[in-house]
Nucleic acid binder design. Structure first.
Lengths: 234, 234
DNA sequence: AGCTCATGTGAAGAGCTCTTACATGAGCCG
DNA sequence: CGGCTCATGTAAGAGCTCTTCACATGAGCT
């Protein structure tokens, strides 16, 4: 019984689930004060243990941050995979959905996003972290490959890998410059989503995809899933 | 005479130019260990003064960081302005040069770049900082406006402002994801410059610019060989 | 029941941030 | 030259955090 983490300090000598509690505490603190403004001791205090306790679970502060980043990448991958939905109903629509999901993740999970991209931890900090990041990118890359297969003949285009990197870069740029309203960010005369969508549409047009006329205005409300490009041929 | 900062501690009670020395020291430290790994005390030590001395020149650590960011934006603006060169010899060429200059700045001045974009200081930390950032962006925006004026008629395009934001986002995304080889960054099967150039070309093509692969080089030859993204795919 | 070891604690050293009281000397004024 | 004054430096200290110790606890196995 006493192992149970009652919310009112009713906790035995042992916490019972400290590692998880520390991750959660750190997430909350990062969301509040950014990845820089979170301290190991703070996470311990939030979890209700002494400042030394975390060292039983994480080598140091960076190790904790890396764990969060890894978990973030896993969740990110799941999010992107769901958005991609294997290219349904058509490749371009699904592709645009990935972009929205990207921004949405950055906005709704700023703590994860910060840990993943702005915390300064090296990507190769751990093989697991690198692998998780790789898997997340693989989703974008797979989508780019399907897109590449659809580019009209006669149009020169870069390798699918490069297309994926373009989209990732554009998305990350939008997200990190304007993605979070949470102060410290620049003001924008439009939503980040509109910005990204318009950019992506122009990019796709540059790859030879047919376009409708609404490049600068997201117009997804009325148009059914046939989307701006029509249904993708198989 | 004793005010002179001889390299061997031959320095009177007063430093003589501490503010500047602190900025330089901080720049060096940031370049070494990132914006997070630099401490006020460290900068003081590097400058050869007591830990309390910096407080005579900067309200706190963030104030110093903001000063560096501001100076960075001013230098950034100068760099971009030089690259743009008022659109000579032609708008698209000059535009591409801005992209290269962007990446080059991020690589050769990682300390400035970090302070400007990754240090977590709010943009409106000081009006001067915000203004400096605004002026730097204005260069890109002016270029985008010239570009917008050149888009072929009949092609829908977003406002110039949005085009500028697209380019900024793409550049920043490339720079911050892959821009600095200095560890902690992802490996890339190509140079960041090539990545950005290819992306920008596709984007421009999407705006209706006749960018067959070499158009940006103000060429005359229709030589098919390798463009910015290598040989044309299947 | 008794052992064992993962997990948590308190104390302590070292470093950083920032404040306060005091020291120095550069520039000015007569 | 002598003396003011104040910007700029210092030392010392309070209150943090980080990290490592030796030591305490109790969960789970035998």
């Amino acid at each position: 019984m006493s192992w149970h983490k009652d919310r009112r300090g009713e906790r035995g000598y042992h916490h019972g689930n400290l590692k998880e509690a520390l991750l959660q505490a750190a997430l909350g603190l990062i969301a509040e004060k950014g990845p820089a403004g979170f301290t190991f001791a703070d996470a311990a205090r939030t979890a209700g243990v002494s400042a030394a306790a975390p060292y039983r679970h994480f080598r140091d502060r960076d190790d904790l941050l890396a764990s969060i980043a890894q978990r973030g990448f896993e969740q990110f991958e799941a999010t992107l995979t769901a958005a991609w939905d294997d290219g349904r109903p058509d490749t371009v629509t699904a592709f645009e959905r990935i972009g929205k999901a990207y921004l949405n993740f950055a906005r709704t999970e700023p703590a994860f996003y910060s840990a993943m991209f702005e915390s300064g931890i090296p990507v190769d900090s751990s093989p697991e972290l690198a692998a998780a990041g790789e898997r997340a990118f693989a989703v974008i890359r797979a989508a780019a490959e399907r897109l590449a297969a659809l580019t009209p003949p006669g149009v020169t285009r870069p390798p699918a890998m490069m297309m994926a990197l373009h989209i990732w870069s554009l998305s990350h740029g939008v997200a990190s410059l304007f993605g979070r309203g949470d102060a410290a960010r620049r003001k924008l005369p439009m939503s980040p989503e509109d910005l990204l969508e318009a950019g992506a549409l122009i990019y796709l047009r540059g790859l030879g995809f047919p376009t409708d006329q609404n490049v600068h205005k997201s117009d997804t409300s009325t148009a059914p899933k046939s989307g701006p490009w029509g249904t993708a041929p198989k």
